[in-house]
Design a protein around this nucleic acid. Structure first.
Lengths: 211, 211
DNA sequence: CCATGTGAACAAATTCACAGCA
DNA sequence: TGCTGTGAATTTGTTCACATGG
């Protein structure tokens, strides 16, 4: 019930390692050491080992890691060996783009439906993703079996919609709305605030310009 | 030359505080204490004070902070009192959406141009943002005075384009490409990897499902 | 008084350095 | 021998608690 014992930082690095490993595998490389991974992808060797060690012993001392096997284990660990269904809420610019963008080819994630309150849009498609009305929210979650909701709505309605998604049984939420949500403890929720990223760069740019 | 003395964590919270303060100001509130801010927006009072203290004394002991004045000072601190021009690189689904999405109404950020290598798109517009060809990259940066590049291209060409942007004199980069860039020390660069966010939720969902 | 600003305590994350095993 | 896995050291970030000053 706590948000899992593993930190976001570690988890995000695991995703990174996995991506690197896929590259190595596609090059036909059989084995890799933490040092080689670190050097090729600008990571830290000690940290790779620490991160992996949290989940058991993956490597062979004196040799390194088996690329195929480690790839496989990380895949399973991150739940990428099965398909997660995604519901987009808010089919504006960003929501529509995400509807097309988040169906990755490896089939770990697939967008199955979108919700919007614009009568013009309801019944239309974004690529092969159908758009439903707000009334159908709970129904769509249940019918499609969507697990992850991607919130791309204006800040004001965000909390209300979040609560309805939780009530409808959604399993996780990725929130692009620039609003601080009161989160449900049982539903992993991650905020992605694009404006904040820009503002960070804004500051760092100015700071970089000084002596 | 280091990426400024202030951590990303702090900087991102400042953005958050600023957003909350704007809300209070719009409600007509004159003063606010760190405690009130914390309670209303689910933040930590001590952390607000620590964060602000890094930049000088903003408040009045025994009283709190002047909403208007603090808003103003944070605005200036984050460089939001002037307009930052943005260049979108890669006008696919995500790039086009960002072209529309990242011009915020307060005029702190404005998208001025996009680059794409699809001959069909070159010369077209995304809203009021013109699309140019890859050859024109350096030229567009110089002509428009764009400071921030938003990279929304496939992983393979990302590094090459990044290097060209840096050479062209870009001041900061927000990278949406799922690629780990060799970053230029003088150019603040922030990675936003949407797939990694989904994978994190994927793991936490499974973890939340266990006892 | 009362809320800020801050040093000191605590917690988390990263890096170091080496023991231990293939 | 050489690289993993891991405690110990260090750095970074957060919380606590109180002296300070409007």
């Amino acid at each position: 019930m706590p948000t899992s014992g593993i930190s976001s930082l570690t988890l995000n690095r695991l995703s990174l390692y996995l991506r690197c490993l896929r590259g190595l595998r596609d090059e036909g490389q059989k084995r890799v050491s933490s040092l080689e991974l670190a050097e090729r992808f600008h990571l830290s060797a000690a940290q790779i080992r620490k991160d992996l060690a949290q989940f058991g012993e993956f490597g062979i001392r004196g040799v390194g890691y088996d690329v195929e096997q480690l790839t496989e284990r990380l895949n399973r660990l991150l739940g990428l060996d099965r398909t997660h269904l995604i519901l987009i809420v808010g089919a504006g610019n960003l929501g529509s783009a995400l509807a097309r963008f988040l169906s990755f080819d490896d089939r770990s994630f697939k967008v199955v439906a979108a919700i919007d309150n614009d009568p013009e849009k309801i019944g239309q498609m974004i690529g092969d993703v159908p758009i439903f009305g707000p009334d159908e929210l709970g129904d769509v979650v249940r019918r499609t079996g969507a697990e992850i909701a991607v919130l791309a709505v204006p800040p004001d309605p965000a909390q209300g919609i979040y609560d309805r998604l939780v009530a409808a049984g959604i399993k996780a939420v990725l929130n692009f709305a620039p609003a601080r949500l009161a989160r449900d403890a049982g539903v992993p929720t991650k905020a992605v605030d694009l404006r904040i990223f820009l503002e960070e760069l804004g500051y760092q740019m100015e700071a970089a310009a000084l002596p």
